[in-house]
Write a protein that binds this DNA or RNA. Structure first.
Lengths: 368, 368
DNA sequence: CGGGGTTATCGAATCGATTCGACCCGGGCG
DNA sequence: CGCCCGGGTCGAATCGATTCGATAACCCCG
């Protein structure tokens, strides 16, 4: 009764002195219906169509409804639609690090693909994903760099069982109610090392902090393994680790390259670390690739943005195809059983290991 | 009646053969209530508290409810909560370019601040913001780099009038039902030019494509104006324009610096263009700042990540304080009238114009 | 002129939560 | 002993949309 009472109060106040001011509350479908003199059902049909393209509403009626909506400045309430239909027309990306070019490339590709299908892309960055997943309604969620812990697996399974569609990027997880995109870096890492070993023996390594001490195989392993295989000494001072950011990678690279007996080549476990290494070399007055060669891992777009361009390994065509998989899952959730999608890696030679500078294409003008 | 019929059908099927399989639908509050043998109201109180901290539910009852919820793997449906309470505990950022370090810095700061207050940050990148704003429910939306067109202004006003809280970053708009964050670049741009003019006369300009021909004042204007004031020749070949991306900026910088009579200093209208110029200089074998000095505009975090560090102008403390403004507006929407928030600019000298390399601090280790 | 088939519209149930007032029950007080 | 008070629960209305079945109006044809 009080609720109705509230309503009365608001209406009366509205009549009295808020008529001219901005309406406090967002207009609702019901208001539109009343103004147009039709039922709510009809208004809904005008805005959302009946069951497909055709609205099934007669021309003059539809016009009245649209005019009323326009006058009230009405837009449908998305939460209400979501609760009724169970669809949110939304794709959710949970990225482990916003500034990572790899993540950005995925985000850009998914955003394009989603827009093309009338979906909106929401990006969540480094917070508590599992909490966030409960706070946001989306048709599909993409998780990038999720942990392989049992705890993580359990949560993923729970989410999937609750009906949340998931696409997980992981090099180790198996599909379990959710899709897994896998692009195993290992073979690519060996390619990178082999490429360096064609011309170098004193190879340094720039590696993420966690991977150094971990006994599990990681992008660090191919470095150790190949060096051992060739009988090359693994100089402790030739391995530097960095924590997360490009700034840290830069500092690590400076340390690596400012030693007296510095390596003549650097194997970096991410593209952004490799780029940091190139910058570091420049700062120290070293020429790339003459004085020090660099390979990165990931084949991110940024690899083309440094000078010289970065030699890197990675999957090709990767971001676009990932985007297609994610968006397809959003559009018809249960078309196929959740799958494992694999992407093979290959080597993309650039100027950072080779003297022949590769071509660069982009748009720019100099005033006449 | 058919809906009830649907329900029956589902239940029966559930009894028959889906009992062991994953439940198709997400568990609801009502299911929890039934399993725990209490009313929906009680369950709601357990999960959301009565009207503040205290749940007002007796200990043993609450325990039963939580166990039932756990067993069903229940999590509240966010859309339903949003529709009832009108709050989504969500902050929305609409960024004009995802890869722009400026935008990323804002995003990172807002994300931190929002997490600290139990809110979730959603990032929308270059799509149709106005459409997206209708597709996502959020307590406040931040718009970055919104157009100053009449059309844009009108849409903003409409959104604000519909009850959407907005914080707009703009150098020209005035508050109009929404907050405006302004950080006028002009004075800062003059600082940058003055800094270069202390030691240089042959100054080149790297400028966003749109700004060159536009008659409106932009970051390009201070360049022209100062050059004229000092009686310095404005060499057409010393101005290069780039479209949007860092790749384009790089190409433009190469063109600028590979001329016979190249400038000895470059005024770049964004930090990322300045960084591209530094990379270009390195590629061409030019030393920075000995052969060519560079200043950027924006004081983005990336300015610290190049070698040498970039001299730049910009607001200080900017990202954190913006984040506070945005989040505060999300928390209590109408605490204050929408305001204009201004941030003054200053000069941050770096190694790209000065031989004394500034200190760099970050974490990195070299193995012993 | 009446029966069958469209077509346009409406009424009402529903999605999953929140929240208000009412109710029940036991204890302290007069 | 009876009454009042307040903590704990419940029932039911409600948020803003979608959607099913029913109804009314209309047309065509026999």
């Amino acid at each position: 009764m009080t609720q109705a009472h509230d309503d009365d109060e608001r209406d009366v106040a509205g009549e009295r002195d808020e008529r001219a001011a901005a309406p406090r509350r967002r207009p609702t479908l019901r208001m539109v219906a009343e103004l147009a003199g039709v039922s709510t059902a009809t208004v809904s049909y005008v805005f959302s169509g009946r069951n497909g393209g055709d609205s099934g509403v007669a021309e003059p009626t539809a016009k009245r409804v649209l005019e009323a909506a326009d006058q009230l400045n009405y837009r449908p309430n998305r939460a209400a639609r979501t609760i009724r239909t169970g669809r949110s027309d939304t794709v959710q990306l949970s990225l482990h690090m916003l500034s990572d070019p790899w993540s950005l490339a995925v985000a850009a590709a998914v955003n394009d693909e989603a827009n093309r299908h009338g979906l909106t892309t929401l990006i969540l960055a480094d917070g508590d994903w599992y909490a966030a997943l409960d706070r946001v309604e989306s048709d599909v969620a993409y998780l990038d760099g999720v942990g392989t812990t049992d705890e993580g697996k359990r949560k993923l399974r729970e989410l999937a069982r609750r009906g949340q569609r998931l696409v997980v990027f992981s090099e180790t997880l198996e599909p379990d109610g959710y899709d897994v995109i896998r692009s195993d870096a290992m073979p690519g890492c060996y390619l990178a090392m082999d490429h360096l070993l064609e011309r170098h023996t004193a190879i340094g390594c720039l590696v993420a902090e966690g991977a150094v001490r971990s006994p599990e195989p990681s992008r660090y392993s191919p470095y150790l393994e190949r060096m051992r295989e060739r009988g090359l000494p693994i100089v402790p001072a030739h391995t530097a680790s960095y924590a997360d950011t490009q700034a840290n990678a830069f500092t690590a690279a400076v340390a690596l390259l400012s030693q007296e007996h510095r390596p003549t080549a650097i194997y970096a476990t991410t593209d952004f670390a490799a780029i940091a290494a190139i910058n570091a070399a420049h700062m120290l007055g070293l020429r790339v690739p003459h004085d020090v060669a660099v390979v990165g891992i990931g084949n991110t777009p940024d690899a083309q943005l440094v000078a010289p361009t970065l030699t890197t390994v990675g999957p090709s065509d990767f971001y676009e195809r990932q985007a297609e998989i994610i968006v397809a899952r959003a559009l018809d959730a249960d078309a196929h059983e959740p799958q494992l999608h694999e992407f093979p890696w290959s080597l993309f030679p650039g100027g950072s290991t080779d003297l022949d500078a590769p071509p660069r294409s982009s748009r720019a003008t100099v005033l006449p």
